[in-house]
Design a protein around this nucleic acid. Structure first.
Lengths: 322, 322
DNA sequence: TATTCATAATCAGTTAGGCTGATTTTGAAC
DNA sequence: GTTCAAAATCAGCCTAACTGATTATGAATA
């Protein structure tokens, strides 16, 4: 038959700590930094990764010169799996630490955002809590915010400009992600050379849109909607196709997008946030909010990754997500 | 904001070994037996599970009387996640141990079988090998076997009666699963009291069908196709709806199905197998076969679970899958 | 009710894997 | 050539986890 039993005990020797070290290193933190987040010494991290590479039988990190130069092809291949295993574990464990979430909850998510991670987290939450019926409503962030009161939504996730303050103090809000907003395009453009800026943007009401327009305003330029869509996928595709200049946060960039920054003369854009709002005070709402807040797909590690600044929440919970 | 950071280090303390112990115990093996498969003592397994329960903050096993009486509600909730984490890990690690699988492969899978696990494994394989293009063809097992030669199929998975021997010796075949075949229904039926047996079965050519019919023959009974479908889902639903008596392997039983055995006078049915055949000798075919053979969704642990007999492969690879 | 058996829990002693801290190596920047 | 930062290496230590023996539990017998 097949002769593939490389070593007895096989994959048994791999531990979650190995994966945590690898993921942290893959994010570009050095061995020292990774050790800090894992509450281990640099030496321990080095040995940990070495061990993982031994077990897997391949190198994961490209470390030609002194320190890490990125992932090897194998590392690139392994990273998504490692991330997923850690996410699943983290979610499963924290799900067990609280009573099962039950009931029926209505969640509002922005459809003008890259929400696949969000959807994954939501569906895994449903998997771990079979007595929980989740209903997801997708709408523009601006509409979601407007509808919180009268639409019966329990939990609302929406995008907004930095330092969002909920208009109703009863709502408990939680920052899921903070990241810089970028001008993006398929090719290079020079700001000064453009008389009018063809924008690929979301419809009126979108905070990215208004941030972009007012930035242009301040710089005496006029932007027009070369392509307007309420769907993130459409926007992404339109930018890729070169239909104009998009305005997207770091996490929503596609591979083929390039960032237009100071070199090209483009003005700075504000930071944007993904915020979660508890609109009802049901216990299940709080539980779900906890789950999503914990979910590694939107944890402080990622916040940090996308961000230029440090986020206060980061250091305190690094141990949990690290 | 949210106050859910139960303990510093949080889920960091959970190890894959904990999960392995739990999964084995959840399968009804005792602590002793589980220890054997993990190459650990009974004592170690006891402590391992205790630790896991401590970390999670809930009991996973119902162990009222001397030994395990099954899972608690929490255990039931945790099991799927634990299984998935272990599967992912096992797959990811073994995927890294061999060079990336690349190329285009055509897989034939039976559509008259409960194949969700199979599909999951196939899609995870594609995830771990981005340069691999997998195309899946679904057909009746009998047709798949017939078409191996001229259809360009690289890998074929099919169901058959026990001790299947490929007709062409060039094909390398591999037993994925062996399990008993059962008479199943929605309610109890007494064999003797039935003049004709209303069967819910797959179309002509299906080995389950022929096994059932010849068993009836030997007992002087006549069966007729009360409901015939080539789709597993249809068959399952028809049995659940009480349209007749089905003939399904242990792994394909739904919750609401009951097994009709000796008490009800039903004759014994043969063991059935899920067999994987390498139809081409491309290296990628072998690699894919290895992956699927390793995949925990169809590993010896499961073979054993469904089986009355011991399978030779079981003991040798228990360490890898245990 | 006592006896036996099978199983799991407990406990103390041991072990080994992995951590720390110091040191060396490496490569880059000055 | 010197300095510096970062990673690798190494020896020793430490603790989490394992072993083996013992005890506890409950079921099945008589």
């Amino acid at each position: 038959m097949f002769d593939c039993q490389p070593s007895p005990l096989g994959d048994r020797r791999v531990t979650l700590e190995h994966l945590r070290a690898f993921v942290l290193l893959a994010e570009g933190k050095g061995f020292q930094q990774a050790g800090l987040q894992l509450y281990r010494s640099q030496s321990a991290v080095t040995q940990s990764l070495k061990r993982l590479e031994d077990i897997l039988g391949c190198k994961l990190l490209e470390r030609r010169q002194g320190h890490i130069m990125g992932l090897t092809a194998d590392g690139e291949r392994f990273l998504p799996a490692a991330n997923e295993i850690l996410t699943r574990t983290s979610e499963a464990v924290s799900a067990m630490k609280q009573p099962e979430i039950a009931g029926r909850l209505l969640i509002g998510v922005p459809d003008d955002f890259k929400v696949v991670d969000l959807h994954d987290a939501i569906s895994r939450c449903a998997e771990l809590n079979r007595n929980l019926r989740l209903e997801v409503v997708s709408a523009l962030s601006s509409q979601l915010l407007y509808q919180i009161d009268n639409s019966g939504l329990d939990l609302v996730i929406l995008k907004c400009l930095e330092d969002f303050v909920p208009s109703d103090k009863r709502w408990r809000s939680h920052l899921l992600r903070r990241e810089p907003l970028h001008w993006v395009a398929a090719q290079r453009h020079v700001f000064e050379s453009m008389s009018e800026v063809p924008l690929v943007i979301f419809p009126d009401g979108c905070c990215y849109r208004s941030a972009a327009l007012s930035a242009l305003d301040r710089n005496g330029k006029h932007g027009y909607g070369a392509y307007v869509s309420a769907s993130y996928e459409n926007i992404r595709a339109a930018v890729s196709a070169g239909l104009g200049i998009g305005v997207l946060p770091a996490s929503a960039l596609a591979n083929e997008h390039i960032i237009l920054g100071k070199q090209e003369g483009f003005p700075e854009l504000p930071m944007v946030e993904l915020v979660m709002i508890q609109a009802t005070d049901k216990y299940a709402t709080k539980q779900l909010a906890d789950f999503l807040a914990h979910s590694a797909t939107m944890n402080p590690r990622n916040v940090n990754e996308y961000s230029d600044h440090n986020v206060s929440a980061e250091s305190s919970s690094a141990g949990i997500f690290g």
